[in-house]
Each structure stands twice: as C-alpha cells, then as structure tokens.
Simulated scan of single mutants.
Amino acid sequence: MLPEDVIPAGPVVLRPHTAGDAESNTRACADPEIIRFLPQIPVPYTHDDTLRYLESARGIWKAGGAAFAIADPETDEWLGSIDLKPPLPRDTAEIGYLVAPWARGRGVATAAASALAGWALEHGVERLELLADVENLPSQQVAMAAGFRREGVRRGAERQRDGARRDLVSFARLRGDSGEPVRPYLPWFPGGSLTDGTVRLRPLTAADTDDYQALQILPEVVRHSVPPEPPSLEDARDRCRSAGAAWLDGTMLQAVIEDASTGAFAGEIQLSGVIPPLGQAMTGYSMRPEFRGRGFATRAVNLLVEWAFEHTPLGRIIAGTAPGNLASQTVLRRAGFTQEAVMRGLMPGPDGTRLDDLQWYRLKDIPPRPDTPGGP
C-alpha cells in the first residue's frame, strides 16, 4: 500500500481528504464543466454524494491507490481532488482529477498532476496514464504541462449521460521520462485569434459543425477535397470535436475564417501534413460563396502563414491546387507563394481517376523568386 503522505506541490499541497472538505466538494461538483466531462458525477450532486465519495476514497487507499485533496498550503482550503487509481497489471496506474471552478487559471491542476506523478513513480509505479475527453482541451494541456506524452485516441472509450460514447485522448508518463513539460509544436493563437481588422481566424470547435458541414458539401469544395467526397454530418461533427486535440498534438491546425466586423462564418483554413523534421506544413482553405472575390482567402492565408513563421519552427509552407483552379492560384500568388512543380496524377479524382496537382511554396524570410512562375 502507498503511504498517506502530504505532498508539497508548489502553489498547492496534496493531503488526504477530511470531513471538512465536504461542503466545498459538493459545491464544486455542481459546476457545468465538471458535469460535462465527468459523466460519472451524479446530477444533481448532493452532500450525500460527497460523503459517498469520501468513503470511496478510503477504499482507493486500501486497494493500493491514492486519493488526495488538493488544498491551499496556507489556508488548507479544498481546491480539488486528485486520485491515483489502484495499479493494473503491468504496474500501470491512472491519474484523474477535478479542480473547483474558483481555483482554475492558477496552475492548480498542473502542479497537482506533476507532483502526484513524480510521487507515484518514486513509489514503484512504472507507468502512469491520464485520459481526457477529446473536447477537454484544458485537461489535455494539463497532461502535457505535467510531462505526460500523448499516445493516441481511444475511440468510444467513455459512455456519456445520454448513452452515446465519446473518444478519450490517452497520455502516459513513464518512470524514465524527464517529467519536463511537453511543448506543443503548434501553439495557440495569441489571445485566441488572429485578425487584420477585416478577417479573423479562430480555432474550429464543435459549435461550428453545421457551418463547417454546409461548406464542405458544396460541389465546388467537394471537387477539390481529398478525397473528393462530401462529409456526413457525423463526420463533420467528429472533425470539429477533435480539431482542438489535433492542434495540441501538432498534427493539424484547423481554423474558422470569420468576417471580423460581423463574426459571420466565412470559411475555414488549415495547416496539415506537418513534418517537424522538415519544418514543413501544407495549407488549404475553403470559402463560402458570398465571401469569395473579397480578398478574404488571401488575408486568411497571409495571417496564418505569418503567424506560423513567427510562432512555430515551421520554415516552409506548401499548397496544392488543381491546374484549372485559377481563383485559388491567385490567392496563393497574392499571399507570396511561388509555383514550384506539377505533380502528375497526384490527387484522387472521381470514379478512380487521378488528377494533376500544381504545387506552391512559401519560405520563411525568403521572398518569391522573380524568375519562377508566380514570382513578382
């Protein structure tokens, strides 16, 4: 069994639960975000539910796990809970936590998760796992900041209150890991968005599902998609739900293009095909018909590429267009891209055909060459 220690954790302390934590715990578990991402929490959550949790915490200790309160080191105020579930075969244990809404934004969860992970590994646990709902980006950021590495997505791993199953993002930290924070290759936009006063780029979210799908099923958008097939509403919902997790993972950035004056959904833009060793990624974009011909796409590409060159290790952004897609080629030229090559039969077309792809590039700190097609 693990010792019921008191663990200093920077701005907080981990200690065993006490009866005095009950009122704060009950109040915290009425929080909408806790209810949303912890479907096992009863609704409504009562004082009796807290007493049952405190009793179950004793059982966790007896079974070889650990159940701590996260507390203020000065006042001993309860700020949250963090558990180490009893180890599974192969010396693997799972960490789970919740933080009261009044204690968020202070690094409480990161400090607690990092301290508990280090303590558990010192006491013989070989591998720690941390699971987070695919839409729970703050929890995924906590995992990375506490030295956990993302390993993948467990599809349909958790049942929700309505009976549906949701994906969980899986993180792990091993005894031999450094425990240093895992820095995202693609950081968030400063302040949450990018704007030049005319267009605004912000992360794609589940709330954009209907607008996103309506854009992606337009025939002219489908024609230039890979593969050239319209997404179902469920596919669009999954893409929007997981967009933030893919961004954090550094595999794909998807952003909404908005009219900065009205907030209207004007289109979407991505960085995909990210290859860190090469410092290269690909951009692509789609616009709603009523926003075409107004320079929105060019502005969006410029905003995204200039942000990428300033805030990420990327040094080369590429793009591809159909040879006949003159509008997209104009966007890329105006955004500083240079035509590079024609890739014969690169793209899948309808009915098993193959289509040519016109390749473009833009380099960090290097202007387009005047002696190449697309140069000034």
Rank of each mutant, 00 (worst) to 15 (best):
T195P: 08
E151V: 11
D167M: 06
V199S: 10
D167C: 01
L168V: 03
R155W: 02
A172W: 12
V153H: 04
E158S: 12
R154M: 15
S193M: 14
V169N: 12
R183F: 03
V153D: 00
R159N: 06
V169K: 11
G147C: 04
L194G: 03
R155P: 06
S193G: 13
F171G: 07
T198W: 09
A172D: 11
G152M: 08
D167E: 00
R165F: 10
D162S: 02
P181W: 04
R166K: 07
V153P: 01
D196G: 04
G176W: 15
P187F: 07
V153Y: 01
R154H: 12
G176M: 12
D196Y: 06
P181V: 06
A145Y: 00
L174N: 04
E180G: 09
A145H: 04
R173D: 12
P190E: 15
M144E: 15
S193N: 13
V169H: 11
S170D: 14
A146K: 02
P181T: 05
S178E: 13
A172G: 11
T195E: 02
L174W: 11
E180K: 14
S193A: 15
V182S: 08
A172H: 10
L186W: 03
A157Q: 03
V199Q: 02
V182M: 04
S170I: 10
S193P: 14
G156D: 07
V153L: 06
P187V: 00
A164H: 11
E180A: 15
G163N: 02
G163P: 03
T195I: 05
E158G: 01
D196I: 11
G163S: 03
E180V: 08
R150M: 12
Y185L: 15
S170A: 15
S193I: 10
D177H: 06
R165S: 10
G179N: 06
L186M: 05
Y185I: 07
T198E: 05
Q160W: 13
D196K: 03
